[in-house]
Write a protein that binds this DNA or RNA. Structure first.
Lengths: 207, 207
DNA sequence: AGCGAACCTGAGCGGTCGCTCACATCATGG
DNA sequence: CCATGATGTGAGCGACCGCTCAGGTTCGCT
């Protein structure tokens, strides 16, 4: 690279002063609001900046692209969900079989109740950002965890079960029923009957 | 309306001559290809017309908007799936319980195997077109069918089952496992083991 | 052959989008 | 209290998008 290349560092910047932190936060909050209210492709960066009460220039000081902005919001959302998930599943994996399943289901529902509307937008509308890979990673982690759990409790399962296939089925079922609740019946996210039914589906399938 | 209003009929037109039918077909085929290959928001109408080997003007002779074009493709896809579904479930709803469930599951998987990649795009990317209502209608129809079926077979189910909740659970489970297969394990769509597992999940939950 | 209808063409309009940059304002340490 | 970096501004650029329209080409029919 010749000397003329000024190394134009990409416009990503780390906020330091409290004022800047507030700006970043306002932008993320506004992004969430607009995404939920208007949908992904009506959520233009200009509109987001306006809703956040900052100029479009400020937005691009902290996020190098719209994609990066949405990805950052996604990270924050996933982080919040993970905290709930881990808190609710910390001590139960050695609990009695049925109770362990129940707690995991309960945790999934609670995690998705953090911000169901935003979650719905991510699931339904946000395009194949590179971040989709991250979702796949989470998915794969869940699959491995489930697989290990089933292996560990092998003696309590009905015989003849293909553990690989069974873990795929179980993970997909719990996730999917949770998502179905998010999309169509958000009222069920906090309903104990939902927890019981999903637990029954899984336990009856496995034992 | 004053006389100056020329009643500018919207640019939708019905193709008559075979040449025109071929054009319409080429446009729909190209739309499917581009949607799968590039994703919804990189699928510009100009790009689609180019891929179809017709001019952009021709495209807008038959489809009044991009939305209408995608909706038409969606209709065609849903139609193809419905044919498979109905063919596979026509005679089995009076079959023995377990066998009936199995055939429905088998039919769902077969229907989704028609064009899984396109289905994936519709599920993941196509925004809240008005057509989303149509999907909800199908969903609701499935729910009612399931509810009626369970009612009809009430004596074969375990007691204490809340039929409303149970039909939601069953429909969501079958749909969701099918979709999980479409998205992550398309190989399972034609795998008999998958049919067996999903049937087991449902039957064990219900009886 | 001739003619009206059906069909097809593609340059380009009006608009929006993501994003940049030259500059203003604020906050802090010397 | 001023100098300097951190922070904030917003007009506007270039690209692309959905879509139109004035006019050409082909078809079906007499």
């Amino acid at each position: 690279m010749p000397a003329t290349q000024k190394l134009r560092t990409a416009p990503r910047k780390q906020a330091i002063q409290p004022r800047a932190l507030a700006t970043v936060d306002a932008i993320l909050e506004a992004t969430a609001r607009i995404l939920v209210r208007e949908g992904y492709d009506h959520a233009s960066t200009n509109r987001i900046a306006e809703a956040a009460g900052v100029s479009i220039g400020s937005l691009y000081q902290y996020f190098p692209s719209k994609e990066a902005l949405v990805a950052a919001l996604m990270d924050r959302h996933v982080e919040e969900m993970s905290i709930v998930l881990q808190r609710e599943t910390a001590r139960v994996l050695d609990a009695p079989f049925e109770s362990a399943i129940e707690h995991v289901v309960q945790a999934m529902l609670a995690a998705h109740a953090v911000n169901p509307k935003l979650h719905k937008v991510f699931v339904e509308q946000v395009p194949r950002v590179g971040r989709l890979q991250k979702i796949r990673d989470i998915e794969e982690g869940a699959l491995r965890l489930a697989r290990d759990f089933l292996e560990h409790r092998r003696t309590e399962l009905r015989p003849g079960l293909d553990l690989d296939l069974a873990s795929f089925i179980v993970v997909a079922t719990v996730e999917a029923l949770t998502h179905a609740a998010v999309l169509y019946r958000p009222d069920l996210l906090a309903d104990r009957r939902m927890v019981n039914e999903v637990r029954d589906v899984v336990v009856r399938y496995l034992t």
